[in-house]
Write a protein that binds this DNA or RNA. Structure first.
Length: 319
DNA sequence: CATCAGGGCCCTG
DNA sequence: CAGGGCCCTGAT
């Protein structure tokens, strides 16, 4: 599917803003709906029934930051559509986030000080919809990165759409109803294993529009947890990712998976393995910013890995 | 060759 | 609330 129509959206983020560390997360596993180079992220997006190809560009300076989003589409888009899309982009990448209070509260922490200086203006982000994030969460469960990558790619090739824009070909997600009506055997043929059942069942409430992502954002913390946990295949780990990245609860850390526990032990405690409850107590000192603080340290180690070999980390990643 | 655990979660007792 | 089972895959 070739996308010929092109529109430009310009977004002025709040100060301070750091483009690269916000628009690229080296800790995310690689997927073929996105591509990155410094100052530029390609990203497909299925939104409002349209399959879009987007290029996010760093279009400003440190003092006057600007995100330029090139929107490619096969069919024309109305100005109303584009305005709504702009707001969605602002939400997903937290371009309205005011970090000043966080920096004030946390800025002198010995571990965070230098990281904040390096990534001054970093925000968490979720490049996908809630539904798509749930799919990714299911792909991560009980396996290693390599398999997560290959399972998602298989799903793209069977249920997604290959888009071409800016001379780049990237896969775009499917509508939930496509997977809600898939049968388990055809999914299992893609070697997703027992996750097939979760994929189907998690798609159903979205296909039937029983869950509205926009409405969910306005519900209380407890209601959000309840709704998400009621979905088949969603447990505390997937919930944790979504509460922070997708629903912007900057204090949300309840669960630490074994893999994260090992990495956290090294980067926060310089030890082999620290008990989870001890970790949570330590993170508690960052109060209502603890999730965001952990995100900063977490991102830092992945950026470091891009530049130099960290052998203990390589062993834990298990590509 | 077999066995095991991995960016969890569901279900049972 | 603890613990077994689950699709696969590569590491050992």
């Amino acid at each position: 599917m070739k996308l010929k129509e092109k529109y430009i959206l310009e977004i002025i983020p709040t100060l301070p803003f750091h483009f690269n560390s916000t628009f690229y997360k080296p800790g995310h596993f690689p997927s073929n709906d996105t591509r990155w180079e410094s100052g530029k992220r390609w990203q497909t997006m299925l939104w409002g029934g349209k399959r879009l190809g987007i290029i996010y560009k760093d279009g400003g300076s440190k003092k006057n930051p600007k995100v330029v989003a090139e929107i490619y589409s096969a069919s024309p888009l109305t100005s109303e559509f584009l305005e709504n899309l702009k707001n969605e982009i602002i939400w997903r990448f937290n371009l309205n986030l005011d970090l000043r209070e966080f920096y004030k509260y946390i800025g002198n922490d010995p571990l965070l000080k230098s990281i904040i200086k390096k990534f001054y203006g970093l925000r968490p982000m979720s490049y996908s919809s809630l539904y798509e994030y749930l799919i990714i969460g299911i792909m991560l469960q009980n396996t290693v990165v390599r398999r997560s990558v290959s399972m998602l790619q298989s799903l793209f090739e069977k249920y997604g759409t290959l888009l071409e824009y800016d001379r780049v070909k990237l896969w775009c997600h499917w509508e939930p109803k496509v997977m809600a009506t898939a049968n388990e055997e055809e999914l299992r043929a893609l070697k997703v294993g027992y996750r097939a059942k979760s994929l189907i069942k998690v798609s159903e409430p979205f296909a039937q529009e029983e869950i509205n992502e926009i409405e969910l954002r306005n519900k209380s913390n407890e209601e959000q947890e309840k709704i998400l946990l009621s979905l088949y295949g969603v447990g505390p780990q997937t919930l944790g990712y979504i509460m922070l990245d997708g629903l912007h609860h900057w204090d949300y850390i309840r669960n630490i998976s074994p893999w994260e526990q090992k990495i956290y032990s090294r980067i926060f405690f310089n030890k082999e393995l620290v008990p989870v409850d001890k970790m949570l107590r330590r993170f508690g000192k960052w109060g209502k910013w603890k999730g965001l603080a952990v995100h900063y340290v977490w991102e830092d180690i992945w950026w470091k890995r891009r530049n130099k070999h960290i052998s203990w980390l390589e062993k834990l990643i298990r590509l």
